[in-house]
Design a protein around this nucleic acid. Structure first.
Length: 442
RNA sequence: CGGGGUGUAGCGCAGCCUGGUAGCGCAUCUGGUUUGGGACCAGAGGGUCGCAGGUUCAAAUCCUGCCACCCCGACCA
């Protein structure tokens, strides 16, 4: 791909509406374009990143046996009246009428819709558990959208739902997601802390928020440093193993400021282990029992008796994660972004020194590009005639993990190669390939 | 929704107080000189000044209404 042919509108001036670094960077590098308050178009760079995050989220859902479906964005008000939330949800729900004057809404979440699907399809306890997810746009009409895609109105979310016969089995399902979430955020190179949380309008009595550490995060958090040492690599998907994992995590003090209690903090955490910082909520899981199944009559037959299924729901803000990762990884002082290679829009940037009279470096770039391509390494060539300094600066900002500079110091065999923001070294294409490949494997 | 603020070229801004028909930097295009941590010179293109009405010989500028966007607060994946 050539930069000159990409829709990547890079700005030197930061649009004045952006206040936090992720929003600034996303606008500057042309990842998104605001359409109206809290509603954004995703341009190629941003969209590529979001899609890569999505695929990691998807993989970890599939790994615990969740089935992917796709539900619509527009829902009928009928099912929301059944659950009672048509009134409860309030102004945050965007209500619309179709041409027949039927009351419709743009889904802020999907408990009702999935429950309706379930009750029409599953009749026997033998079909349980049912674990289902989809990745779809949601709309919540925030009073005050802000911070770009961090707190916007239209957002892309993975939401999963579980249906079980008993509470114990439902907790088992819950714990599967608990583990899947830890693994997902780990793969995104984020430190996520599960925290006991309030359930809000979803309802229920068991809930965890997954918060990632970021100095510019919205919520203040209080926790125990040792929580990062919990090892879940040996945790397997069975009831006792997962239950142990939950217990291990729940023993550590970890709360946001609404739930903070200084005395409890002092009691449970030694001064050495206290960590007070800020974070961003990127996932939230709930167990809410038969709240919706009872209201909407979703049941299965067991021993000749009707049993309301026990449900849970599990969200990950996919579009928010794009901004959250920037908050965690962007060095705005030096203007260097470092995308983990598995979600970077390209693996490598090729930056040739080009002048009007001498296009030879561009030809060399193409050779390297084709070579890397044949090795499944995705590169982008900056074929513009800007100075090499400008190109490096620009790609530091974009955050593609590796840069190859092809200029006056290159030879036919050795090129300057750097991890973004680090020093250049002379390497052959073989060596470059090996470094990138190694990174891709991790 | 309460309080505050802003709408002028893709982005950042000046002009408005004191009305005379729009300007600067970045970006874009052309030509030339450059080329290692965001180069320089010369030239060019691009704006019904958020929208609607009003005052006036004349409105970006004054008046009225509306709209949009941003910030602080309450609420939240």
């Amino acid at each position: 791909m050539f930069l000159s042919k990409s829709l990547v509108p890079i700005l030197k001036n930061i649009p004045s509406e952006a206040k936090i670094k992720s929003h600034k960077l996303m606008l500057r590098t042309g990842m998104i374009k605001q359409s109206s308050a809290g509603i954004y178009s995703w341009l190629p760079l941003g969209f590529k990143i979001m899609k890569k995050i999505e695929s990691i989220v998807r993989l970890e859902q599939d790994n615990i046996g969740v089935q992917e479906i796709l539900m619509p964005t527009i829902q009928s008000s009928e099912i929301w009246k059944e659950s009672g939330r048509y009134n409860d949800y309030g102004e945050e729900m965007l209500r619309i009428k179709d041409r027949q004057n039927r009351e419709m809404l743009y889904g802020p979440t999907n408990e009702e819709l999935i429950t309706e699907i379930f009750r029409n399809s599953i009749k026997s306890y033998k079909s349980l558990p049912q674990l289902l997810y989809h990745i779809q746009w949601k709309f919540r009409d925030e009073l005050r959208p802000r911070f770009g895609v961090m707190r916007c109105r239209e957002f892309y979310m993975k939401d999963a739902y579980s249906f079980d016969l008993s509470i114990d089995e439902a907790i088992y399902s819950y714990n599967k997601f608990f583990l899947a979430y830890l693994k997902t955020f780990k793969k995104l190179d984020l430190s996520a802390i599960p925290m006991a949380a309030d359930t809000g309008p979803i309802g229920g009595n068991l809930s965890h928020e997954f918060i990632i550490i970021a100095e510019t995060g919205e919520s203040k958090i209080y926790t125990d440093k040792r929580i990062f040492g919990v090892n879940y690599s040996d945790t397997v998907v069975d009831e006792s193993s997962l239950s142990n994992l939950r217990t291990t995590y729940d023993e550590f003090y970890a709360v946001t400021d609404e739930k903070f209690d200084q005395n409890e903090f002092n009691e449970k955490v030694s001064d050495d282990n206290k960590l007070i910082t800020k974070g961003i909520e990127v996932g939230h899981i709930f167990y809410f029992g038969d709240k919706y199944s009872k209201a909407m009559n979703a049941s299965v037959d067991k021993d000749g008796k009707k049993e309301f299924v026990k449900m849970g729901s599990y969200g990950i803000g996919v579009s928010r994660l794009v901004a959250a990762i920037i908050e965690a990884k962007y060095d705005d002082k030096n203007e260097i972004m470092k995308w983990p290679i598995n979600i970077a829009p390209y693996h490598c940037a090729i930056l040739p020194q080009v002048s009007k009279n001498d296009k030879s470096n561009l030809e060399k770039s193409l050779n390297i590009y084709n070579y890397l391509k044949s090795k499944n390494i995705d590169a982008i060539i900056d074929d513009t005639d800007e100075g090499i300094i400008a190109k490096i600066k620009k790609f530091n900002l974009i955050g593609i993990p590796y840069q190859i500079v092809i200029g006056k110091n290159s030879t036919d065999e050795k090129f300057e190669f750097a991890k973004v923001g680090e020093d250049l070294q002379f390497l052959s294409t073989d060596e470059i390939e090996n470094i990138i490949k190694k990174d891709l494997k991790n």
